[in-house]
Computed example of a mutant assay.
Amino acid sequence: MVELVAKAKMPIRCTATQAFDAFVQPDRITSFWLKSASAPLGPGAQVEWQFMVAGASECVNVTAFERPRHIAFTWTGSGLFVDISLVEQQGGMTVVGVEVRGFDGDDAMDQIVNATEGFSIVLCDLKVFLESGRPANLVRDKAALIERTRDA
């Protein structure tokens, strides 16, 4: 059986350390992706994340932490495994890649599409945030759309 993997990748004009810290530090990750994070990510950390969609949360269990190149974690509620790689390129560019695994069930393909779309939006917002100093509010706007659709 073929493993189902959602993937997203984005070049960002920043150092790998800057991109890494944006995912690790609560004051940074809440600038572009999350509503709140209970603590910084670190080796073996368990952190509660509240997403911008009302009621959406996950407990993050960090499984790999190699500053500034790699962060991996499981979302304990969904069982999904998220792997974030950061590869610094010449010219002040870092390629941030995300792969998500662990999809199953009859709606696995829908889950993959949603994860790919979601992480693409997160990486676009991260790019704008790190390159301009402020988020584009793409994640916030998508969360509002999800809430409106859910309420309809």
Score class of each variant (00 low, 15 high):
residue 46 Q to S: 13
residue 150 R to F: 11
residue 63 T to V: 11
residue 129 F to T: 15
residue 16 A to H: 03
residue 39 A to T: 08
residue 80 L to W: 13
residue 70 H to A: 03
residue 134 R to W: 15
residue 83 D to H: 04
residue 141 D to P: 04
residue 126 L to C: 14
residue 121 I to K: 09
residue 8 A to Y: 07
residue 106 D to G: 13
residue 89 Q to L: 02
residue 15 T to E: 06
residue 42 G to H: 09
residue 22 A to L: 05
residue 31 S to N: 11
residue 147 E to L: 12
residue 89 Q to G: 00
residue 113 V to E: 13
residue 41 L to V: 03
residue 67 R to A: 05
residue 112 I to P: 00
residue 74 T to I: 12
residue 88 E to A: 09
residue 34 L to P: 14
residue 58 E to R: 05
residue 48 E to H: 14
residue 149 T to A: 15
residue 12 I to F: 02
residue 110 D to Q: 08
residue 145 L to G: 07
residue 49 W to D: 10
residue 2 V to I: 06
residue 91 G to P: 04
residue 150 R to D: 01
residue 55 G to C: 08
residue 123 L to T: 11
residue 40 P to N: 10
residue 118 G to Y: 09
residue 103 F to A: 02
residue 136 A to R: 11
residue 90 Q to D: 11
residue 35 K to R: 15
residue 13 R to G: 05
residue 7 K to L: 06
residue 38 S to Y: 11
residue 66 E to N: 11
residue 91 G to T: 04
residue 144 A to F: 12
residue 85 S to E: 03
residue 118 G to V: 05
residue 114 N to C: 09
residue 120 S to D: 06
residue 32 F to L: 11
residue 44 G to Q: 13
residue 1 M to Y: 04
residue 25 Q to M: 09
residue 101 R to N: 07
residue 60 V to D: 06
residue 19 A to I: 02
residue 28 R to T: 07
residue 121 I to L: 14
residue 3 E to F: 00
residue 51 F to G: 15
residue 40 P to S: 15
residue 49 W to C: 10
residue 50 Q to F: 02
residue 4 L to N: 02
residue 111 Q to C: 04
residue 112 I to T: 10
residue 31 S to Y: 05
residue 18 Q to H: 01
residue 7 K to F: 03
residue 143 A to T: 11
residue 64 A to M: 07
residue 90 Q to N: 06
residue 83 D to Y: 02
residue 79 G to P: 02
residue 146 I to Q: 10
residue 134 R to N: 14
residue 46 Q to F: 02
residue 107 D to V: 08
residue 76 T to S: 04
residue 64 A to G: 04
residue 16 A to L: 01
residue 147 E to Y: 10
residue 48 E to G: 08
residue 85 S to F: 00
residue 16 A to S: 11
residue 100 V to I: 11
residue 42 G to S: 13
residue 52 M to H: 06
residue 94 T to D: 01
residue 108 A to V: 05
residue 77 G to N: 10
residue 93 M to Y: 00
residue 145 L to D: 13
residue 65 F to L: 05
residue 14 C to F: 01
residue 102 G to Y: 00
residue 123 L to I: 12
residue 107 D to I: 03
residue 90 Q to M: 08
residue 30 T to P: 10
